[in-house]
Design a protein around this nucleic acid. Structure first.
Lengths: 348, 348
DNA sequence: TTGAAAGCGGTACCAG
DNA sequence: CTGGTACCGCTTTCAA
């Protein structure tokens, strides 16, 4: 690496002191205009840049935030990352991105590695293992060390920190409502991680919807695919669809929805005429499926942006420590062609 | 932020000097076993961690690498990121991830922001704008400042640095060969960025294949969709398919392949019986399409891993500056159900 | 208006 | 075997 220009070099070159250079570059009023101009011009000409580590050491601030996500290959996390990146960028923050790969041990390593002054705060979605075991001590420790954390997506209610989440409950409830409004009567539910808090909430919202709209409640058509690989989904689903006069499903992710759609089609249903599908999703799969799929969008980018704003606010508020906030990102039902359209006029 | 434990604190607490503590913690042989044990025990108990910025300032090494990609929402880049992340993690490196959003100006800002001692080197895939205009000065400048760069994916041959790339030419050539082997005679080609170097190479490989296998060469069935949004793909493709007895296509990305597949099906073709599709892809779209799609896999994770290894090697080689390397990642034809199967036995 | 010096948290050389 | 000190690059207080 070529030696970089430092304040010292400039001072020597221009026959002034180090502190004069420093002040001139920070546009201090203590320095005479001429001197300032001379120094600034020199700095500009030779592309002086203050050293990042020296500044961070001095300020105890790095203008860097850490993002810990379970898996970058999941579209929702890539979206959240994007949202964070945009806000961080606007505010002059860098992002250190780490992937926990759904392992608690990796999560701990990452926290350990970064709580040494590398970063000013964390944005985290806890991994599956952590969420299921409710094993949050490592987060708690970091919070106690004084690092700000914003949790998103899978948010532990046990932790005291800023949070960004969606209303899972409401999302499935609304989906049930839409299906009922478009004439569905026997709505199935497919999940892939029954132990996850969000899955439980989604199922609750679904059941509440069934109850409230007086629809059929049938345990047999609530399917959990936790233990299966996506290649087996169709095999598992097929007999259940065959034996239960299902006319629609809500699924907690895209891949299962695609499988459900294929199974329904193979069984001779026509989507959306006599079979409807709604999936939690943010992805490309839904947009490119045939027919294109009606989805519950979680607005990953918004979540990310909101999380970043919360974190940066907290970092920059210094010692004032405002109350912890929990922001709710609204989900939307994105109407495509796997459900019938419902025009309110019909009901007037 | 709570005050963190420093070497100074430990020294004071244990009534030894700062240098003794430093040496003890680095397990220096200069220090008596007893003293070492005492100091190390204390450090462990109170979770001492050396300050990142102090170390980086001293060593002029940050154990951090910057990754600049055009867009995290593209699966291939998320894969590359994953590959980088894994290797970096093993080697104790952190990653600062930046997104250029396909804008040269953003790329410049990022380079400017990070060339201040924040990081030890770059892994970059230049954005579209940069690639098309061959506007590489900003990279050149950074290289001249002494920062190691590894370029991947869209690699400028004008730049002198380490590179990781695929053989675009060979990839399409092989695809043509496979199609010919499975009986296709009239192979179309669909691209989305005709100005991009890789697209040109892919087209060349395709044409070379056609020539060598004595297949029909027809400009009308080489389609470029640069100017269209994906929603319009089907509209553009349909008349071309209708008027040209096409029996197969090779496409440079997934979304166009899906569109082609849908159009072919609407026109009454049966895939793969009388219509075949091969797409450049790494994504989920191909795996979940109906039928599942035969693809040219670019092995994003391998590219990332290789790039990270190259970069870290160069960073740690210090002043020895080994010759720049260009690594080729082999593409694979992943056989699925959008092409007929070709068993060599048939030809014996 | 300018400069000397201390300090941020470490490492490493050299003296004792 | 232990400690003093300079230094990494910058900011900031205080003295001149």
């Amino acid at each position: 690496m070529k030696k970089k220009l430092t304040i010292k070099d400039i001072a020597k070159e221009l026959n002034v002191s180090i502190s004069t250079v420093s002040k001139a570059l920070n546009d201090s009023h203590e320095i005479a205009e001429v001197t300032k101009k001379r120094i600034q011009a020199y700095a500009k000409e030779f592309r002086y840049k203050p050293n990042f580590n020296a500044l961070s050491l001095k300020n105890k601030k790095t203008k860097t935030i850490a993002v810990i996500i379970p898996n970058m290959l999941k579209y929702i996390y890539a979206q959240v990352f994007n949202g964070i990146e945009q806000v961080a960028n606007e505010q002059g923050y860098k992002i250190i991105t780490c992937v926990s790969n759904e392992k608690t041990s990796k999560e701990k390593e990452i926290l350990d590695m970064l709580t040494n002054g590398s970063i000013d705060g964390f944005i985290i979605s806890p991994c599956l293992e952590t969420s299921i075991n409710k094993d949050y001590m490592h987060f708690q420790n970091v919070i106690e060390e004084g690092y700000p954390i914003v949790m998103f997506d899978r948010v532990p209610k046990e932790l005291d920190c800023d949070k960004v989440m969606i209303k899972d409950h409401k999302a499935t409830y609304n989906a049930v409502e839409h299906l009922k409004n478009t004439g569905c009567k026997n709505i199935g539910f497919i999940s892939t991680n029954k132990k996850l808090g969000s899955t439980k909430k989604r199922k609750k919202g679904y059941i509440k919807g069934l109850e409230e709209f007086q629809l059929n409640i049938n345990e047999n058509i609530m399917i959990d695919l936790t233990e299966y690989h996506y290649k087996e989904y169709e095999k598992i689903i097929t007999p259940i669809f065959e034996n239960n006069h299902i006319d629609s499903v809500i699924t907690t992710n895209e891949a299962t929805a695609i499988a459900a759609q294929k199974v329904a089609q193979k069984l001779g249903y026509s989507i959306p005429n006599n079979f409807s599908v709604i999936a939690f999703s943010n992805g490309i799969l839904a947009r490119h499926a045939s027919p294109q799929m009606t989805t519950i969008s979680q607005h990953g980018e918004k979540m990310g942006a909101k999380a970043a704003k919360l974190l940066i606010y907290r970092i920059e508020c210094e010692e004032q420590t405002p109350e912890y906030e929990t922001k709710i990102i609204k989900t939307d039902l994105v109407m495509r062609n796997s459900t019938k359209s419902f025009l309110k006029l019909n009901y007037k």
